[in-house]
């Protein structure tokens, strides 16, 4: 039986990532003139998808 020992920290961080997903654009990037906002959303999504899948495949969450 795998431990899923990182489940709780992962859930807390996931909520933080989703909160950042909402807050950063409205507080810091709302006047974005180039591709910063698109990049922010793309990079944060891609990074968290990568973290999630690595942890999931290893049975840590």
């Amino acid at each position: 039986m795998e431990s899923r020992k990182l489940k709780t920290p992962y859930v807390v961080l996931s909520i933080a990532v989703v909160v950042l997903f909402y807050l950063v654009p409205y507080l810091m990037l709302s006047e974005s003139r180039n591709l910063e906002l698109a990049l922010f959303w793309s990079v944060i999504t891609l990074s968290w998808l990568t973290v999630t899948n690595v942890l999931l495949v290893r049975g840590l969450i």
Binding site: K7, V11, S14, V18, F21, A38, T45, L49, N53, I61
Partner: peptide, 21 residues
């Protein structure tokens, strides 16, 4: 504009987190 990207990506992000947890 680019807000449409945020709208659709947050769906994907939340879904994958739910699928994982």
């Amino acid at each position: 504009g680019v807000g449409a990207l945020g709208f659709e990506l947050v769906y994907l992000l939340a879904t994958v987190v739910i699928l994982a947890v």
